[in-house]
Design a binder for these strands. Structure first.
Lengths: 352, 352
DNA sequence: ATAGGTATCGAAATCGATTGCATAAATTTA
DNA sequence: TAAATTTATGCAATCGATTTCGATACCTAT
């Protein structure tokens, strides 16, 4: 199979008897080229099958019209939605999107930041790995004026754009909701406490208990490593076997919350009557499990959109110093069956 | 904030009194550079904070060590896993990954292929949009010798690498499973028939019925547009209201299958006794819904890995003509509760 | 000592697009 | 009509890495 040669602006120039400069300017709608010429050149470009070479343009301009993403797991629903939001926004603006996943490993995060840097991305959007503590690998972007947007899992010791939800309030509201449903011994599935999101959710939980005069029992606060289904299962089993088991669980994610529901059912503990459960994220499984899971909804796609916008706006306005705009988005408590002890479920109790 | 200047191989050259050629070769472990020199140069590179410029290298080599992905929706579990597999494989080989989603629009697919082409990707991995019929927008890759791997949703009129599962056999086996469970009137949730995957699943379904001497009833075959939850709900309602309703459903995806289960429960039809259900994909919701959903599992991550490998291998071996290796992967029927009419469920029937 | 080999390294062209500066032509102004 | 603008376009350098030819120095064998 023969490989066709590339059509470049030089080919266009030769063909149309213009200089490459004019071709380039015409294709970019430069104002110093007459409309007639622009039209002529653009039509010829299409006809000859010309396609711009981003590598060449990027080299020359020292930017690649590409947004880099660094997240931990693409197939987590939240992160997939995040990426989706970024991609849509970026593409509309003519930007490409490079992705990389750390699998929650610090080491991967470092090599991925390097790989993205080497591609001279316009900006970077990051949700930190579970392990990351040191932030040194991000400095090179700052030094070169490449904007970084931290999203969801953000550092607290690094000055940059941030897009987050109000995890404290969400944790507070979720816990308060359980309290209002009559729970008095509420357990908490906590995530790694060096990650802001889990730390703040826990703080919200604690403050809600305090506010309502409920005792804080360390035994009811389980610290998870990954908030996986298996971990949730084990924790729930342990909790329900306690002499004085909890009557509510606020889980820092839906996966563990769902495992709690399923575990409780298996152990003959009825949800929500004996155990009310509320999760976090509003993953698809939340509305499928029975009883359906109350949870905190996370505007993932929107967070992606906003993060991408930050990068795009930055590169236009070229801020020089105020590299620290923080966007805090609200969350919503989605009340489903798993936490609804007081008001009867709307539909009649058939088939359950 | 000041922007630091880029460290280039020229800076290294000046600093170390070598020519840029030598620096370049040393960094690439070229054999004509002594090990001592290589070590010296590499150490200096690290110390001076040198980072290669992929744009420059890519321009010179006319390749960017980047794999482009074109799928329809990032947040579909299957596609997210696919991307994940591609990303992992690519990154291990030192490649970056550009993503784009068509949202199942032909128009987006075209503009995205252009955007990816303009970035001079090394290869392209595609799962076709629902609308795509004409394949003209892929020709430019072939012309330039850029390999394309079609995965899952593949064309049948275009010569290129393909990575698929055996949809026909999967459809056949799923249907056969329902028949073996005693179903005699099996409905089928079919997807758009111009997409290979849905067409073949349906063919397998039809052949299974024929083989077991069951009549084919057009009324039991519902053609979906998107196989969404809502569509599934509506279809199930319609089916169950028939004078002679089906006793089994083979759905082309899990979303619609789950909606069928939930709809049946709401209508007082017990699953699997009165209605056995089997889905396709093994999405997370499949194991969460109650009764849990039997389904066909799809090696999504592996398909991603293989697709990426195809690109990588191609660019090494530089095949010239045999651009049509097809990989067919097997699937697995996952039997859960929703289809198990004969054998009793293993766990005792508590709490259900 | 000389031819041939090998190990190391350099000069300079190249990839394709962009852009500051210069120029030529067309138009307006004085 | 000459001068001053404005409009439209070209020249040539530039971005950073790679690679084709060679060139040089050092060895080895005859």
């Amino acid at each position: 199979m023969k490989i066709k040669k590339e059509v470049t602006i030089y080919d266009l120039a030769k063909e149309l008897n213009y200089s490459p400069s004019t071709i380039s300017r015409a294709l970019n709608n430069h104002k110093s080229i007459s409309k007639k010429t622009i039209k002529l050149i653009k039509e010829a470009a299409v006809e000859m099958g010309y396609r711009p070479n981003n590598l060449a343009a990027g080299l020359r301009n020292n930017r690649s019209n590409t947004i880099g993403i660094l997240i931990s797991h693409i197939s987590r629903p939240f992160q997939a939605s995040l990426i989706s939001g970024i991609e849509e926004t970026a593409r509309k603006a003519g930007y490409n999107v490079l992705i990389s996943q750390s699998n929650d490993k610090y080491e991967n995060e470092i090599s991925n930041t390097n790989a993205l840097y080497d591609s001279r991305i316009t900006g970077l959007i990051v949700s930190l790995s579970m392990e990351t503590v040191d932030m040194g690998h991000f400095q090179k972007f700052i030094d070169k004026g490449i904007p970084i947007v931290f999203v969801d899992r953000v550092p607290d010791n690094f000055n940059s754009y941030k897009v987050v939800i109000d995890n404290y309030t969400a944790g507070y509201s979720a816990t308060k909701h359980l309290i209002e449903q009559g729970c008095t011994r509420i357990a908490h599935f906590a995530g790694a406490q060096h990650r802001n999101i889990y730390e703040e959710r826990k703080k919200g939980y604690l403050d809600a208990l305090r506010e309502y005069g409920l005792p804080i029992e360390e035994d009811l606060i389980i610290h998870f490593k990954t908030l996986s289904f298996e971990e949730g299962n084990k924790a729930t089993k342990k909790l329900l076997k306690m002499p004085n088991p909890p009557d509510g669980i606020f889980s820092s994610n839906d996966t563990a919350a769902v495992s709690a529901i399923m575990c409780a059912k298996k152990m003959g503990v009825s949800v929500p009557q004996d155990l009310a459960v509320i999760g976090f994220n509003d993953d698809p499984i939340a509305s499928i499990v029975q009883p359906s899971l109350s949870t905190v909804s996370h505007p993932a796609n929107k967070m992606g959109t906003i993060s991408a916008r930050r990068i795009l706006d930055h590169s236009v306005q070229n801020y020089d110093n105020d590299l620290s705009e923080i966007t805090v988005l609200g969350t919503e408590i989605i009340v489903r069956e798993s936490s609804l002890k007081k008001t009867p479920v709307l539909e009649p109790k058939q088939s359950r």
